[in-house]
């Protein structure tokens, strides 16, 4: 018991390293605030492009989506991070991380938005067009609001995954929460910082998990 407290819940250590963890936490927060909106925007572009039903374009989009769904995000991250310099593109590590995550998350968000748009019947489009709305207006004001509502649980679920992905950036030494936790562990030779990192993620993500359980139960019951 004492060993457990000393190694996992060591307040002294925590006091010593908390500036590091705080720094990591801000970095993780920044990452999320960049990656989630970027991914959603990318996904919307994919899904709206798909909704025009141009055959060659749709093949291309499905290929893009399935390609990145078959690709572990960590592999993509490492490939982009270590690969870009080899072709002469020296970009800051944050940019490399953002590129990799955008490619990956846009494909997942794209697939979700696509399913949402397809769930809206023709009647809605026809009604909107019959009142003189343009195709794009119909999409923005009539189809998307309903589509988003229909796939809200999937959107939140994917956002949860994206936030969890940001921890992968620690592998390429981006100073986010997990990375700082490991640095702090190395400095103190005590795993308390790692436990603290896990608890911070829990505090951050548990509410989303709870919300999700409720939403999913409601939608599955409806179907």
């Amino acid at each position: 018991m004492e060993a457990l407290i000393y190694n996992f819940f060591n307040l002294e250590i925590l006091l010593k390293v908390h500036p590091l963890l705080l720094k990591g936490f801000w970095m993780t927060l920044q990452l999320c605030l960049l990656v989630v909106p970027l991914g959603i925007a990318g996904g919307l572009v994919v899904a709206v492009a798909y909704s025009f039903h141009v055959r060659w374009l749709n093949w291309l989009l499905i290929a893009y989506v399935d390609f990145f769904r078959s690709f572990p995000p960590l592999v993509l991250l490492i490939l982009v991070f270590y690969g870009l310099p080899f072709i002469g593109l020296e970009v800051p590590s944050l940019i490399a991380v953002l590129i990799a995550f955008l490619l990956n998350t846009a494909s997942y968000y794209g697939e979700i938005f696509r399913a949402g748009i397809e769930s809206i019947g023709r009647g809605q489009r026809e009604a909107a067009r019959s009142t003189g709305l343009t195709g794009l207006q119909t999409m923005v004001y009539v189809v998307l609001p309903q589509a988003v509502r229909n796939v809200l649980p999937d959107l939140i679920s994917n956002t949860l995954e994206v936030i969890k992905f940001t921890a992968l950036a620690s592998v390429v030494a981006l100073p986010e929460l997990l990375r700082m936790g490991r640095v702090a562990q190395g400095l103190t030779y005590n795993p308390t910082p790692l436990i603290a990192v896990a608890l911070i993620y829990l505090a951050l993500l548990w509410p989303i998990v709870r919300l999700l359980s409720r939403l999913e139960r409601r939608t599955m019951a409806k179907r």
Partner: peptide, 21 residues
């Protein structure tokens, strides 16, 4: 809930680097 909320990489690192202590 815990295992759905935690990033897998965090779980692995805790198991691998913290549990031996």
């Amino acid at each position: 809930d815990v295992f759905r909320a935690l990033p897998p990489i965090v779980i692995m690192i805790v198991f691998y680097f913290a549990l031996p202590f």
